[in-house]
């Protein structure tokens, strides 16, 4: 029974899974780029540098992605100004709305991971770099960021998997990614449990592959050697 269903709907499900991966990849890469300045500013010792990223992170971590998505997709569409702006061709499409919301959302989390990682760098190493005559900027680029990247990598891989799964919410703004596709198929064949199980296994395979990839990356970067001195 399950195999029949799987064979019959596999092409559609793969189509959905592809969209899921696209959404995830775009948002975690764009999110990381956005998060680097946020994370650095967030761990600054100056309160006025710290406060802006703090507010940003606070809002995006404090509210559900589902609500952020509804606000961007349905909420913005209510305003004439937005509908007549140059951005409307992008905001009109559910795909870009989802990517935008997921990027803004995940950047807040990644920035926090980066801050934690930067603060976890043993102060001695930074002092050593400064004592060797490195400038603040050089210390940041050559010592702090590579160190923080290794410390933060396990948490970042967690975040990527989280976003892979969070992309299932895009089904609520009409995108036919894996969950949306599955729900649409269920609307035709009513095989609720079997279809959700199949979708679950596909998600599992995708996250398994991602986790293995990150494990390889961790080994390559020798993350173990940097932790738990």
């Amino acid at each position: 029974m399950v195999w029949e269903l799987l064979l019959k709907w596999l092409p559609k499900l793969i189509q959905g899974a592809t969209l899921t991966l696209e959404l995830t990849a775009l948002s975690v890469i764009a999110g990381l780029i956005l998060a680097i300045p946020l994370g650095i500013a967030r761990s600054s010792k100056l309160w006025y540098v710290r406060s802006l990223p703090y507010g940003y992170i606070f809002f995006f971590r404090g509210t559900p992605l589902l609500i952020q998505l509804f606000l961007v997709y349905y909420g913005l569409g209510q305003f004439e100004v937005v509908r007549e702006s140059v951005l409307w061709p992008y905001l009109r499409s559910p795909f870009w709305c989802a990517v935008l919301t997921m990027t803004l959302h995940t950047a807040a989390y990644i920035a926090e991971i980066l801050r934690g990682a930067i603060q976890a760098i043993p102060p001695g190493e930074i002092e050593a770099a400064r004592a060797l005559g490195m400038s603040r900027f050089k210390t940041l680029v050559h010592i702090m960021l590579p160190r923080a990247a290794r410390i933060g990598l396990p948490a970042y891989s967690n975040e990527v998997i989280l976003m892979l799964k969070a992309s299932s919410l895009a089904s609520t703004v009409t995108l036919l990614e894996l969950t949306g596709m599955t729900r649409t198929i269920i609307a035709r064949n009513y095989q609720t449990v079997d279809m959700f199980l199949i979708a679950g296994v596909i998600y599992l395979v995708m996250s398994f592959v991602l986790i293995q990839g990150f494990k390889l990356l961790e080994r390559w970067l020798r993350v173990d050697a940097c932790q738990g001195r």
Binding site: I161, K165, A166, S168, L169, T179, T192, V193, F196, L197, A199, G200, Y203, L204, M206, S207, F208, I211
Partner: peptide, 19 residues
Amino acid sequence: STLVRGVPELLWVLLIYFG
């Protein structure tokens, strides 16, 4: 941890309720 972390929360909610 692998099994549960690999599947979206939304799917777990639906699966546990209906399944």
